[in-house]
Simulated scan of single mutants.
Amino acid sequence: MNRAERFLQDFHQRRPGTTPPAFSGLGLPGRGSSYDMLAATLAAARPGAQLLDLGCGDGFLLDLLARQYPEARLIGVDMSTTELQAARRRLTERCVLLNERAQSLSLASGSVDAVVSHLALMLMSDIEQVLAEVHRVLAQGGQLSAIVGRSFLLGEPGQRYLQVFRAAAQRDRLAPLPLVDPRAQSQDGWRQLLARHYRDVQFEELDLEWRPSFEEFWDALGQTYDLDRLKPATCSLMKDELHRAIQPLLRTDGTLLTGWGLLLIQANAA
């Protein structure tokens, strides 16, 4: 386990369930949230299909799948015991939950019909091994569907946030912590990663509009990996600096126009 993976494990042990509140309320007209769009890719799954949520967190997506596909057999995998405890409370007996790393799954080869992952796949270390392991557990022709990050905070608010955060990180002398493989930051990179084991690879860019007040904006950022690494005093100073930087961008109703750029990936096991 490398330094980035240890950080992620520690973060989610301390702060389970941070992703669903940020993304479950944002979506596209007629298609719902990014969770809904990911679940919709499984519409052709046969009754009784075995579905695996990789990096399942607190079970939000599994709960949605259990309601939309009641005949499916559901499995969730996560390396955080705290996230899995939250998932057990949410799901009761509706699925099997495994405390495992995606790089080494205990599931039998060819035993899974579809694998889904929401904002987790791109964070997994040794991504090539993860994708090889997903291919191993998928049945031939089985489906991989993932929502991954594409652009953090769309538009000018995102640019101003990055400027202020970089200054704060410099004050705290934060060492670089690359959480995402460079190849997992572009479609070309994903094509390269998926080329060996997958076919029929499809991408769809999703821009989810978000119109928060400054306090909502700051509260959401407080649940991110970046701000978690800052000292409390630095974080407090950064809030003031960000408020000043963002002020000219506030609309007449006091909100910002920004959002999140995501990428929906679909592929089949070769």
Rank of each mutant, 00 (worst) to 15 (best):
G48M: 06
R229A: 09
V164I: 11
T81A: 13
D10I: 06
A49S: 15
Q85I: 06
L42Y: 15
A49N: 10
R67E: 14
Q202R: 15
I127T: 14
G222S: 01
E100M: 04
F217H: 09
G48L: 03
L227Q: 00
P47R: 04
L105C: 11
Q159H: 10
R173P: 08
H197T: 04
L54R: 05
C235E: 10
G25S: 06
A245E: 10
S236Q: 15
L179T: 07
Q50K: 10
Q223F: 00
A22N: 13
D113R: 03
L194Q: 02
D253S: 09
L144T: 10
A40V: 06
G25Q: 08
L263G: 08
Q85T: 14
R211K: 14
P248Q: 14
G110Q: 09
E216M: 07
A66H: 13
R173Y: 11
A269M: 02
L144N: 08
A139E: 13
A39I: 00
S151V: 12
R73D: 05
R166L: 01
L61D: 08
R150I: 02
E241N: 05
M124I: 07
L237F: 01
S213Q: 13
E71M: 07
D58Y: 04
Q143C: 08
L162G: 01
L121E: 07
L249V: 06
Q185M: 14
Y161V: 01
R150Q: 12
R160I: 00
A270N: 11
A132F: 03
L54N: 07
L91R: 14
L153D: 02
M122R: 06
L179Q: 12
E205V: 04
G141T: 04
R14H: 11
G259I: 08
Q266S: 13
R211Y: 15
L97R: 13
F203G: 09
A175C: 04
D58V: 00
G48V: 00
P47T: 02
A102R: 07
A44I: 01
L65C: 14
R166G: 02
L121Q: 06
R94Q: 14
A49C: 11
Q202V: 03
Q159M: 01
G141R: 04
A72Q: 09
L131Q: 03
N268C: 09
D253L: 05
D207Q: 14
E83M: 15
A169S: 07
T224S: 15
V164F: 08
C235P: 03
N99G: 10
P21I: 00
L256H: 08
A43E: 15
L62Q: 11
E241A: 09
L119H: 02
L194R: 09
D113P: 01
E133N: 03
L119G: 03
W260F: 10
F7W: 07
R101E: 12
A108G: 12
R90G: 15
L52K: 10
L65V: 11
G55Y: 00
E5D: 08
A220I: 01
F203N: 10
L262P: 04
Y198W: 05
P47W: 08
Y225K: 12
